[in-house]
Amino acid sequence: MLRHYHDYQSGFKNWNQRSHAKNWLLYPQNLGSHLSIDETSLSHGELYTILTNKAAKGGKGSIVAVVAGTKAEKVIEVLRKIPESQRKKVKEITLDMAGNMELIAKRCFPKATRVTDRFHVQKLAAEALQEMRVKHRWDALDAENEAIEHAKSTSTDYQPELLSNGDTIKQLLARSRYVLYKKQKDWTENQKQRAILLFERYADLKKAYELTMSLSHIFEHTNDKLYGLARLAKWHEKVRQSGFKAFNTVARSIQNHYETILNYFDNRSTNASAESFNAKIKAFRSQFRGVRNIEFFLYRLTQLYA
């Protein structure tokens, strides 16, 4: 039944893009003034670069191009099949901080304003905070192993320190993962208690958490590009004063992309539409119970979204 649908009913055999579907798909008619570009995995970690039209809002007409891989040169070659006069009509394109995406957007859409997605910037800070938490957790595990070995060598019982909420130190650090992702106003009572214990013992995590939340606050409560620049500069100075290596890396990344990051404050555009579309692809893939035939999967996908 499925084979009959695949071979005869679906129209797959007569698909005009079938000959090159594994390498690239192009729908110039879906090109709009505001685009998103991102990468996604279809099967077994194989990455594809997908360009989408924001005006379609994740529905029919969303897909502009799908290109196998993430090499800038290859994606540029495919997108340049669209006439330059059409590509010059693109006003804005949102993207992440990857250098290849920046190059693709710059070369293919020269008139478009490039906007680095604020959520990718915030994610870097969140990951820097989690990196510090994980380091403390490994240190706690080492300390616990040493204490256990010492207890064995002295023929004594090892009793881990229990905190007021019932956590051991290593449990506190492990269970604080989601606490550090959330804003303080969204903490549950248990998370509030855990945060107090965590920040009392690890002042650096408290400072790093404040840096992460203050960066989010800048993007959420700033509507002017000049104010945005000033506030990011102040944030950068706080990072420098903190001496946190992981956050210095984040600050340097922001500096290297500050022009396209600041463009966010013009229209508050993000790459959320691309992330949402990636989620739709994953949901579609789960309905297929994986991707056995990439060409047919892409055909079905484009029938829905191109």
Results as ranks from 00 to 15, higher is better:
I63Q: 01
A272K: 05
R118Q: 08
L232D: 04
A55S: 14
P160Y: 03
I281A: 01
T154R: 07
T52W: 03
N278V: 13
S176N: 10
V121E: 02
I254A: 07
E46M: 15
A68I: 03
T49F: 02
Y299H: 03
V134Y: 10
K22Y: 03
N256C: 10
K183C: 10
A195H: 05
R107D: 09
S214T: 12
K282G: 00
K91W: 02
K192C: 12
G61P: 01
V64R: 01
T94Y: 00
A128N: 05
H217D: 15
R177H: 09
G32S: 15
R3F: 08
R118C: 00
E102N: 12
L124C: 07
A306R: 04
S176P: 08
S62H: 04
G59D: 05
C108F: 02
R87L: 10
Q303C: 09
K280M: 06
G290E: 04
K282H: 09
F277K: 01
P110G: 04
Q191P: 05
Q122M: 12
H4F: 08
S62E: 12
N293Y: 05
W24M: 05
Q255T: 13
K234D: 11
N23A: 13
L232I: 14
G45I: 14
V75T: 12
V67W: 00
H150R: 14
T270D: 08
G243R: 04
S36F: 04
E84P: 07
E46T: 14
K207Q: 14
N271M: 10
R292A: 06
Y48E: 08
Q171G: 05
R133Q: 09
M132D: 00
A230C: 08
H136R: 10
I218K: 04
H20R: 11
R18Y: 01
L172D: 07
I261N: 02
D186N: 15
R3Y: 11
R87Y: 06
L215T: 04
G58Y: 06
K245T: 14
E84N: 11
K245Q: 13
G69C: 13
F244P: 01
W138R: 15
L47D: 06
A274Y: 08
Y209Q: 01
V291C: 07
E220Y: 04
I93T: 06
A125T: 03
K81A: 12
I76K: 09
Q184K: 14
I281E: 07
M97C: 07
A208H: 05
E259S: 12
S216G: 12
R285N: 09
K89T: 15
Q86F: 05
Y305E: 02
V121F: 07
S276G: 15
L42M: 14
A233P: 03
G32Q: 09
F12K: 00
L31P: 01
R201D: 06
M1I: 00
A174T: 13
